[in-house]
Design a protein around this nucleic acid. Structure first.
Lengths: 253, 253
DNA sequence: ATTCTGTTGTTATGATCCTACAAACTACGG
DNA sequence: CCGTAGTTTGTAGGATCATAACAACAGAAT
């Protein structure tokens, strides 16, 4: 089995198929159609197992069975298979989250909790940044040294919030960041004080409504870790610290 | 645990979580946030297991971990969780089918194969009908007694094909079917000969380009099973049989 | 017709892996 | 010393994987 194929099998497994199911499905697409023997001959799935595996695939709507002797199997088209799997996923997703939504605790109580949370990995920091930005009602301060940390969805959220009347200030010493975000309607840009920007490990900083804060650092291998806090005393104190230090060294270079 | 909750847990399991992961995730949404003890006290997940389960959920991007003593856990918002799962699903789907698409056998050879395929369950018959209809180049005959067997996507495909110049003929003894499909631009309707329509188990009939055929029957419990064949001798023979019997009893009532 | 051979489809049986579940253990603070 | 927090280890059960045995059947050879 090639590396590509085992990657595809792994992907199918993460979609909920067993490895046998994935292999049989792929083999049938390679063959067009075939019998249990045909499938077994081009995979490492034992022939005796093909029958039950194929039945399970039929249950999933991924192939059709020709009742003849020998039994022939035919995969549904790639488009139909994708649609079927997608419908199934959407159905399960709705069912799952419908209940969660019904029992979820409104974050009203959470506002007074003194919590600092940690978020690991770039994608999740991205998510958290967008989340915080979209909660802004009055002011946003967004800063980063690295253009790669300004994702499309962050840019879009900043633009939306600016349009909604939120005061948006972008801090960056990097030209591309300044140009990209400064081009957005209603977004101001500025150069941050030296002391913070000099730190080569600095990632991003987000301050929302002077109440919520996110700070991230980028590791040597470019992995990002962030801490954040919303509506907490911690956040207020940290924000005040940061803003105070800004005033100590205003626009120094 | 309520019935609703165990349904939600099942749904999460089908989305790829373990039952512990589902329970912890749900519990944390119910609590807003909490420690391992909190979670264990409202679920049947042993406290000692909460730690590892929560780590696995963090890896999936479904919760965040506060490094304190005791450790606190916080679920990401429902929206973020859904987005994360969806992105994961789409990523895996692409990876899986990219390979299948690369190795798939073009159905060119299949055209001459003498195969009759069986399709079980309504949804899949729907899919197959749409598939056959969209392959039409010259003529379509579509017949059904039951209005419920005319799905939106079937109606849409019939309309598209009629607009593309395909001759579309709808056979039905049922008024609602006649009215619904007859209203489409370029679609003709007619009343089928008696002998076939009298069969209470008849489902649908699709004839495409006089080369492909689908016939379905509806069981007592309304489950549907179809046979179909495309570009085969079988299909031609069956189509000729059907059309011949039409001529024997033209418009009889 | 009988025997032999090979194929097909079904079923049974271990091996292996992962989850579920339980219970130990360490560490720490009052 | 005791209760709590967090880690670690161990076991039972279930699903998947992998192999083998089996009856039914068809065609070829005798």
């Amino acid at each position: 089995m090639t590396a590509d194929e085992s990657e595809a099998v792994d992907a199918f497994e993460r979609l909920g198929l067993t490895s046998y199911e994935a292999k049989v499905f792929i083999a049938l697409h390679r063959l067009g159609s075939g019998t249990a023997r045909d499938v077994a001959s081009v995979t490492d799935v034992p022939r005796s197992q093909v029958y039950s595996v194929a039945e399970s695939l039929e249950d999933r709507g991924l192939l059709e069975i020709q009742q003849s002797n020998p039994i022939r199997y035919r995969p549904v088209s790639i488009e139909e298979a994708q649609t079927t799997l997608e419908e199934r996923f959407e159905r399960e997703r709705e069912r799952a989250f419908e209940y969660v939504d019904a029992v979820k605790q409104e974050s009203a109580t959470e506002e007074t909790q003194e919590d600092i949370w940690t978020v690991r990995s770039r994608d999740r920091v991205d998510d958290r940044v967008v989340d915080l930005l979209s909660q802004a009602e009055e002011t946003i301060v967004f800063g980063t040294r690295l253009p790669s940390l300004v994702t499309d969805s962050i840019e879009r959220t900043l633009e939306e919030q600016a349009a909604a009347g939120v005061s948006v200030l972008v801090l960056s010493r990097t030209d591309t960041v300044q140009e990209r975000l400064g081009a957005l309607e209603g977004v101001e840009t500025a150069i941050p004080p030296t002391h913070r920007d000099d730190d080569q490990r600095s990632g991003r900083i987000v301050i929302v409504d002077n109440k919520s804060l996110l700070l991230s650092v980028v590791d040597g291998d470019l992995s990002e870790t962030a801490i954040w806090s919303a509506d907490s005393l911690f956040a207020s104190v940290l924000i005040q610290l940061i803003e105070a230090s800004d005033e100590v060294q205003p626009d120094a270079d």
